[in-house]
Write a protein that binds this DNA or RNA. Structure first.
Length: 596
RNA sequence: GCCGCUUUAGCUCAGGGGUAGAGCGACAGUUUUGUAAACUGUUGGUCGUCGGUUCGAAUCCGACAAGCGGCUCCA
């Protein structure tokens, strides 16, 4: 635990102390530091609301000024048990009801581990520490919000009130923190998406089903263009598949038992007048089964491998209503999907090439803060959460790990997070407000191709099942664009900007000339528009700046007379007078290089 | 899905048991404009939906919906 975390963890104890002064019956579970501060989970009949915060903070502030020392005490398991039973843990004094959560936590502490208490004034808590020397070391304290959380994160456990706060060594650091949060809110993709008219949601269409406005659609199409170029160069072939399929397909793939909860309920229809049982069709939640059918459609030889099928596939997932989150978590998505069918010998180089594609994309977008997460299986759950192929799991995990190590990418390995059909690598990023998301994914599949009976003829004229790599380096349009909006704060690089050039006639007499220039730019596939309003130039510039247009062209009688352009860049201000050809070639190369 | 909170004009938000208000926007007129906001006027809302209490509900109560903060889950 670093210094700040120690301060925050101590702050959680102070919060508990204050809550107990107000509600002595409070039962506490866990109170750790987190990225932005800390929380303490509490079970309390009184519903704590932000209206209670001043009252709680007043008590906290008194405790901080009292500089209560934190005292560590080693205690035997039996004594700790006895104290918990008397309700003395996470309490100011013995109570009629036992400290139930602390009893449970105590049970989880391995035999032989030192058990410690921390006390500040009358408050005693079961705690591994460490803590600051005294409560006076917590220089700034503030409660932020209250939410609910299942005990130990399990839906079957009772819901507790999770009271969030933050703490710093000094008030100045806390002020800086809140100032930063304010800035982050300004780049929230939900806010910018509305302001910049990129996308919208409508109740009649349905929750989690984004509607893409023209400007957002530009972003989609530019990303697809990038993906198509990149995949074409890497030897992928494009395919197209329908959005629905019969139930049988997902029975074959094995998705239904694992995944039915996350799929929209099926449509049922009688395909034949004398059908007794209706046929069920599902909206596809993933593209792989369809692609497997394309592999199976033609006899395949080892000479055809690796075979790489790419599709921006539309998928529909019935995400739980409480999980929907702007564009980051939706129910309809367009996935930068591809499936690579290869032999075991080809696997490592294919997997490495996929990894390199990821890194190439990150460079184009200037994505620097990300984490590769390598998810493996848990041997204890073979046959339930994971297909029962212990040898293949071991072998493929080894191959993936080797590629990661050889490439020299930083990664963390997480056990028991793999897909049911194989290990995977997820790329984790963070939204403006600090929520973590999987942006892209790269998965190994050694199970489903066999379920589909996929095979190719080997050089020895035998049949073999290919390995499959599922990869989506650009994730889904929805999440990727949600991320990009925040990453660029809506200020997209020229190649992505929905409106690249806005022409600003100084007065309406120049409107016709401006329209002609816009048409000329559009002829060069440059997205240009004219502000033909009667606003003064300053107002037109302000509007273009606010709407984050990368280039503005001021057109007055001087420019019309000498066939030149007054160019202004959103980022760098007035660039002065440039002749037309120079301006065209400047933006054309900036676009084709996809410059940042 | 669960817990809590929110929902007033296109947007941001004020108000509040006697049928609503600001700024911005949009529209119109005047101004003929030169690198981040000209002026005036007009428009605009069954106060999320449905039900209840009340002489009267946008306001109080309930249900539902959507959104927000989390939990669980995932691209």
């Amino acid at each position: 635990m670093n210094e700040l975390e120690t301060i925050r963890h101590s702050a959680a104890h102070v919060l508990a102390t204050a809550l107990l002064e107000l509600w002595p019956e409070a039962q506490f579970a866990a109170g750790p530091p987190v990225e932005q501060g800390f929380y303490y989970d509490v079970d309390l009949p009184h519903r704590v609301s932000p209206e209670d915060f001043p009252k709680i903070e007043a008590v906290v502030s008194r405790i901080l000024s009292e500089k209560q020392p934190f005292v560590r005490e080693v205690i035997s398991r039996d004594d700790a048990q006895a104290m918990a039973e008397r309700g003395e843990l996470a309490a100011l004094a013995p109570r009629p009801t036992p400290s139930v959560f602390k009893l449970d936590i105590l049970k989880g502490i391995p035999e032989g581990e030192t058990i410690t208490l921390y006390r500040n004034a009358a408050f005693t808590d079961l705690c591994a520490g460490p803590h600051v020397a005294d409560t006076g070391k917590i220089g700034a304290f503030k409660l932020t919000h209250v939410a609910s959380a299942y005990y130990k994160g399990d839906e079957k456990n009772p819901q507790l009130q999770r009271i969030y706060g933050t703490a710093f060594a000094t008030q100045a650091e806390m002020d800086a923190h809140f100032a930063m949060l304010e800035e982050a809110k300004k780049r929230d993709h939900r806010k910018l998406g509305k302001e910049l008219q990129l996308f919208t949601f409508d109740e009649d269409v349905g929750p989690g089903l984004p509607l893409w406005l023209p400007k957002g659609t530009v972003l989609i199409e530019e990303l697809e263009k990038l993906a198509k170029e990149t995949e074409f160069a890497a030897g992928y072939q494009r395919v197209r598949t329908p959005h629905i399929a019969r139930e049988k397909l997902y029975k074959t793939s094995g998705h239904l038992p694992y995944y039915a909860e996350s799929m929209f309920p099926p449509m049922e229809l009688k395909e034949d007048a004398d059908d007794k049982e209706p046929v069920r069709y599902y909206l596809k939640a993933m593209n792989c089964p369809h692609h497997h059918k394309l592999f199976a459609a033609v006899p395949r030889s080892y000479r055809d491998l690796p075979l790489r099928f790419a599709e921006y596939g539309a998928c529909y997932r019935y995400e739980q209503s409480g999980e929907l989150f702007g564009l980051m978590r939706v129910r309809a998505m367009q996935m930068n999907d591809a499936h690579i069918y290869c032999t075991a010998e080809q696997f490592a180089s294919e997997f490495r090439a996929v990894n390199e594609m990821y890194l190439k994309y990150f460079k184009i977008f200037g994505i620097e803060k990300y984490r590769m997460r390598f998810s493996t299986h848990d041997p204890a759950k073979l046959g339930q959460k994971y297909v029962d192929e212990p040898e293949l799991w071991k072998k493929t995990e080894e191959m993936v790990r080797n590629v990661l190590v050889e490439t020299g990418v930083d990664f963390v390995e997480v056990p028991n997070e793999g897909a049911f059909y194989g290990p995977k690598i997820d790329v984790q990023v963070w939204s403006a407000i600090g929520r973590e998301f999987t942006l892209a994914t790269n998965q190994v599949d050694f199970a489903v191709p066999a379920r589909f009976g996929l095979e190719f003829t080997t050089s020895g004229n035998t049949k073999e099942t290919p390995l499959c790599i599922h990869r989506a380096p650009l994730g889904t349009h929805e999440r990727f664009i949600g991320f990009l909006i925040e990453h660029f704060a809506g200020d997209f690089p020229l190649w992505l900007a929905p409106e690249q050039v806005r022409i600003l006639p100084v007065n309406p007499e120049c409107n016709a000339e401006a329209e002609a220039l816009a048409a000329e730019l559009r002829g060069k596939s440059i997205r240009a528009a004219v502000d033909g309003s009667r606003d003064k130039l300053g107002a037109k510039i302000r509007l273009a700046q606010v709407e984050k247009t990368p280039y503005m062209v001021v057109l007055g009688k001087n420019e019309v007379a000498n066939r030149q352009l007054s160019v202004r860049s959103r980022k760098h201000g007035d660039l002065g007078v440039i002749d037309r050809a120079a301006f065209f070639s400047r933006i054309e190369s900036e676009i084709s290089e996809r410059a940042l």
